[in-house]
Computed example of a mutant assay.
Amino acid sequence: MSELPNLAYKVLTAEQMAALEADGTFAGAPVDLADGYVHLSTCEQLTETVDKHFAGQENLHVAAVDLGSFGGSLKWEESRGGQLFPHLYGPLLLETVIAYGPLERLADGTVKLPVAG
C-alpha cells in the first residue's frame, strides 16, 4: 500500500450503531477498549476482518469513516500478516462517519461498502 487511504471502515453491532447514532460518539467495542484503540479496516481488509472477527454474528453494520479528521489520534500500525491497519486512539465520532448501513455481501462474498446518500 504505497498511499494510505482516506477512508476506513468500522464493523458495529446493531446496539453499537444505535449508540453511535444516539450519542454521536463511540468509545469502542470490548476488544477496542481492551486494546486501547478503535480497530478500523481498509476496504481491502474489511471482508477478512468480518470473516475472522465477526463470523456467525448477525445484525452487523458497517460505517465508512473519513480518516482526514483525526490527525495524530489515527495511527497506521502493522497487524495481521504485516498489513498496516488504521487504529484510532480516541472515540469514533458520528460526524466523521460519511456513510453506514447494515452489513451486506456481494455475490462474490465480499462485504458491500456503505454508500453516502
Rank of each mutant, 00 (worst) to 15 (best):
T49Q: 07
L106A: 14
T96N: 15
N59K: 14
I98K: 02
E48I: 11
S41L: 01
D35R: 12
D66W: 02
I98A: 10
P30L: 08
T110D: 15
V62C: 08
V65M: 11
K75R: 15
A29Q: 08
A99M: 07
P30Y: 05
A99H: 04
T110V: 09
F54V: 03
N6V: 15
A64V: 05
T42P: 01
L113I: 07
D108H: 03
T42V: 06
M1Y: 11
D32A: 15
V111L: 10
L67G: 01
P91R: 05
D35M: 09
G72C: 00
G24H: 14
V31L: 06
E44A: 13
L94Q: 11
V111H: 10
E44C: 09
S41V: 05
A116L: 13
A29K: 03
L33C: 11
K112A: 06
A64K: 08
E77L: 09
G82P: 00
V115Y: 12
E58K: 14
S73P: 00
L88S: 00
L67E: 05
H53G: 05
S41G: 05
K75V: 02
D108T: 01
P91A: 12
V38W: 02
A14T: 09
L46E: 00
T47N: 08
G71C: 04
L60Q: 07
E78S: 15
